[in-house]
Each structure stands twice: as structure tokens, then as C-alpha cells.
Design a protein around this nucleic acid. Sequence first.
DNA 1: GACCAGGTAGCAA
DNA 2: TTGCTACATGGT
Length: 287
Amino acid sequence: MERGHLSASEFRGPFDLETTVTSGQTFLWRETEDGWYRTVDGDTIIEVTESDGVIDWRSNADPTEVLNRRLGLSADLPQILEAFPSEPVVQAAKERYAGLRIVTEPVWPTLISFILSAQMRIDRIHEMVTALRKSYGPAIEWQGRTVYGFPQPETLAAATEAELRELGLGYRAPYVTETAELLRDGAVDLKAVRSMEYEAAREALTEFVGVGPKVADCVLLFGMDFDEPVPLDTWIQTAIEEYFPEAAGDSYAETSRAIRDRLGPRPGYAQTYVFTHLRTGGGEQEE
DNA sequence: GACCAGGTAGCAA
DNA sequence: TTGCTACATGGT
């Protein structure tokens, strides 16, 4: 086992590991028995903990580059936060969660995770993703235990709808198998999507089954490094009605454009802060 | 028992 | 195009 750490001199600004990996951007990190967070990246097992913005890691390989990408450590967070709009709810979210970073997770697991997220609470999405890993993922031996990575597209394409319903996926089960088939067969080229202009990329992702504009936004924001997406979920829809009523449009595309114009140069970042703030009780005291 | 959770597909008009 | 409605499951 290798060990190491990343200190404040190696990335700019604050970092809050727990909020970042449990706030519903990613479902690929699980807490260990001793309170670290573990994920699998290819053949690499990575465990991290954080205290006062310093990250300690242990792994079977040097995970520095992977951590930088996946945990958003290369972002200039102070500058991003400085550019947040002055609306009180955004500023309140910033005060409360400074250190929350937008992740860039592998696209395929992110796509499946957010297909599963429809009408689901965050803890249950985590459970479903974990169930897929345990039932279909590659097994890796690590420190005397077996850890499971995320299954490949061809593996989930070969699973049956009935099997996936057994795991508690409900009506999302066929979405998973059909999307896996589409990807396996090359019906959508994710590499091409990555280089598209934002709205075209969002549209392209809806080619998958179980992927509408909201899920597509999450995949672009948390899996493909896009800055623009503002996923319009139930929490943000409510926030728009309450705090940005003039941005409420007649369609997803219209509201998306309007709210993006109001959230500053990094709309996705502002959205994720507000989402986390509201979902954890922020804003309840306000009129 | 309603109601809700990081919505979408399918279908009617 | 836009506007319903059904859809699994578990927690409050």
C-alpha cells in the first residue's frame, strides 16, 4: 500500500471532502470502517480522508492525478466563489459550504447513476449504485477484502431487466440495460459529445433511454467538465420560483437559459452550492 | 395512507 | 410541439 498527502500548496482554496463526495454529484465513493472515503478507478483503489483542507490518501498506486480531476482540485475555487452572484440564497450557500467542489467523475458510471436518480433520494441512489457494483462489477482484492468497481457497459447490457429489478432499481431497470446496449453498440459517441457546444451536448445525451434534459445536465456537469449546466431538479425548480421568479420559463430549455444568465460565469457551481444548501435545510428560516 | 424523492417515456391533442 | 399520466421503491 502506498500513502501520501496533498496539502493546501498543491491546490487553490478550501476543500471539504465529505460534502463534495456525499452531496449527490457522485455516487462512487463509500465511507470505510475508519471514516475515510473509498472509490475504485480502473484497477486503482483509492481511499482518502481530509482534515483542515489537507488530503491524506492510501492506494495501490499513486492517485494524485486522478484525485485532482475527480475531486475538482485543479479549479481555482476562491475565484469561482468570488464571482458568485450577490443573491442572498447563493451567498448563504457559499458561506455554509465553501470547500464544496464540483467533481469530474468517469462518464459512464455517472450516466447510469443519474438515470437511477429519477424520483430517488440521494442515499438510495447510493445504495442502487453500490448494488450494481457488488452484483456486476469487477472484483479487486484490497487489504484483505474484496472491493468492486463499476461494471462495464457490455456487462450491464447483458443483464436482464428482471435481475436489475431484483436489485431494487424499479422502473429504471430497463433504462439501464437499454442505455448500456446503446453505448456498447456505439449509437452515441461520448467523446464527440464532450466537444460539442453545451446545448447540443445536452440534446445528444437524451438519445439514451432514461435520459431527459435534467439527467443530461448532471452528466455534463459532473462527468464531462461542462461549466454551464444548471440541472433543474425539484429543489432548484422551487428555488427559482422563490428566489428567481423572473427566470421561470415555459420549458426546460428556456428556464435553463434564464437561470444561467443569473448565476454568474460558473452557473453549475452556483447551482450545486444552492442545491446542497437547500437540500440540507438552508432557507427554511427565510421568508 | 398520503406524499415525496437530483424525472422520463409514451401517448393524446 | 406541449400537456398529461404511469412508473418502483422506501422513508416520513
